[in-house]
């Protein structure tokens, strides 16, 4: 399982590397070797190619945002997730890891639990849109992986997020 998780993270990390807010897994050298996945083909398409991961990440949008201390999905978020669900229904080679995140305004433990709520809210929504539960994993990073680093609401708003990372479908 460790191996599997690592290879999933590798693919997720590499495909995200083309995205503006990349780099959450840059600090994980453990995810370096032996995945056996041909990553160059995984990022072959451009954001305008509807079959490409870039299209999923940028054109559909790989993330949804949340209000302070909340994990409910607003209409924007649901639209994004509708797009994600239909893309994943077409592109069955991909599974997903849904990451939940929080802003820095809270204690470490609570934010881990809050991030899990957010990741799970996305999972439940994608389930309701027909995506198989076996294709989804969730993880929370709490406040450990902010993408914006200022201590103002403009940054906090972007950090309170759930990100759907594409991973290889090898885990079935």
């Amino acid at each position: 399982m460790t191996y599997l998780a690592k290879s999933m993270m590798l693919v997720a990390g590499l495909s995200l590397a083309a995205c503006t807010n990349a780099g959450r897994f840059d600090n994980d050298p453990a995810a370096g070797a032996g995945s056996g996945v041909n990553t160059s083909s995984a990022i072959a398409g451009t954001a305008s190619d509807p079959l490409s991961p870039l299209y999923f990440q940028q054109t559909i949008g790989d993330r949804v945002l949340f209000a302070v201390d909340q994990h409910t999905l607003n209409e924007d978020a649901k639209r994004t997730l509708d797009g994600q669900a239909s893309w994943l229904t077409t592109n069955t080679d991909y599974n997903v890891v849904i990451e939940g995140h929080a802003d820095e305004q809270g204690t470490r433990e609570y934010n881990l639990a809050l991030g899990a709520r957010r990741a799970n809210a996305v999972r439940e929504y994608l389930l309701s849109r027909g995506l198989a539960g076996t294709r989804m994993k969730t993880v929370s990073y709490g406040k450990e992986r902010p993408i914006e680093i200022c201590s103002e609401e403009a940054c906090y708003a972007k950090n309170r997020r759930a990100v759907t990372l594409l991973s290889s479908g090898l885990s079935g």
Binding site: M9, N27, D28
Partner: peptide, 24 residues
């Protein structure tokens, strides 16, 4: 190489519990 959080000493100080993301 992976995130570690909130270590806690055992009552005698011989062991430490912590949360780690080694497996992702």
């Amino acid at each position: 190489s992976s995130i570690v959080l909130a270590p806690r000493f055992s009552p005698t100080g011989d062991r430490v519990l912590y949360t780690g993301f080694e497996t992702g």
